[in-house]
Structures are given as structure tokens and as C-alpha cells.
Amino acid sequence: MAMLEVKDLEVTYGVIKAIKGVSFEVNEGEVISLIGANGAGKTTILHAVSGLLGKAGGTVTYEGQDITAYPAHKIVELGMAHVPEGRRVFAQLSVLENLKLGAYTRKDKKELEDTLQTVYKRFPRLEERKNQMAGTLSGGEQQMLAMGRALMSHPKLILMDEPSMGLSPILVEEIFSIIRDISASGTTVLLVEQNAKKALAIADRAYVLETGNIILSGSAEELINDESVKKAYLGE
């Protein structure tokens, strides 16, 4: 059974159908990439999965539980974290306060300190700046904070929306190597990226999205070698 199963998902904004019946699944331990152009509906899908958006149709099942109608804050408790597009850190709170909010749903106070240390180990810069206002961090640091904050909830599945957006090539490398680490430590990853090359390089499987529909899916390797993907997304 898949960890996350999305079936015939439909999302509408007013009268506009943004997602027109999308189905995909994520198995435990996998890194899955959703790739597609701007406006294809990638972010909308993540928002629908994590409960920020209501669904017009279809179902979302997580670990065998139907979470279609769950509000976002309840889904977090089930072990699914969402790193939103644009980082969305709490600019007027300190780095440490942001991280603590990431652990808002956790009740195991003792293990919490361990998680914090793990996050600091993975992102040493966050520890250096723990008392600094999050709004004063650079874009790359904010991305790390957003990821660290999501990890604080100790998720089994982490959704990441455009983690490389707006970052310099060196930082993009760093972020992707961190995603690889996160995956290696046992967290399942559902990644949305415009940077298709990077997204396919890191993924086990991927889905290609075009104007609210999945038009192609397969192993990352298959997709990298697919002529239409090469042309449209890899710039070859």
C-alpha cells in the first residue's frame, strides 16, 4: 500500500478548474518529483494534499487513512510536513522560535531537544543565528529554516515546494544535497520543482504535470531519457 495515494483529485478556484482529476502515489522511502511549467498546478496539488485547499473531487489517502476532508493542522499531526513555496518563515520571530513552532504538534518534550540538535547539525547556520529574527536571514538561510522547521515536527512524509527557487547555483546544490540527506535518513519526500533536471536527478519516480493534468509518469531514469521531457523541460 502506498504511503500517500491521491486519486482523481480536482481543485477549483471559483469556476476555474485548476486540477482536473490527478492521480499519483508516493511509497514509503521514495523521493517523488512533480515537475511542470509555471501554472501547471504543482503548488495547488501540494496545498490540496496538505489540507490548505479544499478539494472539489477525488480522495487523498495517507497511511490508509482518508484525509481528504482534514484541515491542514490535523494533517501535520499525522506526520506530514509541508515546506511551502517562498519559505514563509515567520519573519518577526527568532530562528529558534520558528523551529519551536515547527514542533507545535509534538508532545514528547525530551525527544524534541534531540530533534533540535539534529536540525542544528544539519543546518549549522541556524544554530549560529538562533536568536536572530528570521526576516533578517538571507534567502538560502530562510530556505534552510523552512526545511528545519518542517523537520522539527519529525515527519514521515515531507512535501517541498520549489526549495531551490531564487537561490544561487551553489545554494541550489546545497539544498538538493540536504534533500538527499533527509531522504537517506528515512523521510519520504514529495518534491515540486521547476528545476526539472535537478528534480529528476534526485527522484526515484516523477510525474509530469501540464495545465492540471498528469501527462507522463515513470521512473526518473525513463523520464530523463524521454524525448518530449528533454525538449520541454530539460532544454536539450
Partner: peptide
């Protein structure tokens, strides 16, 4: 307090607060 921090989070960004597991 946790509730107080949640209030600050909600005042800054409701969606991001929801994603922290805060019942807005």
C-alpha cells in the same frame, strides 16, 4: 507560552501557521 507563540504565528501568516499544526 505555546498559545502565545501560535498567536504571533497566526498574526504573521495564517497558512504557514496551519502548516505548523496550529488550529487557526
Amino acid at each position: 507560552t505555546k498559545a502565545g507563540q501560535a498567536m504571533l504565528a497566526v498574526s504573521e501568516d495564517k497558512e504557514a501557521a496551519e502548516l505548523m499544526g496550529i488550529n487557526v
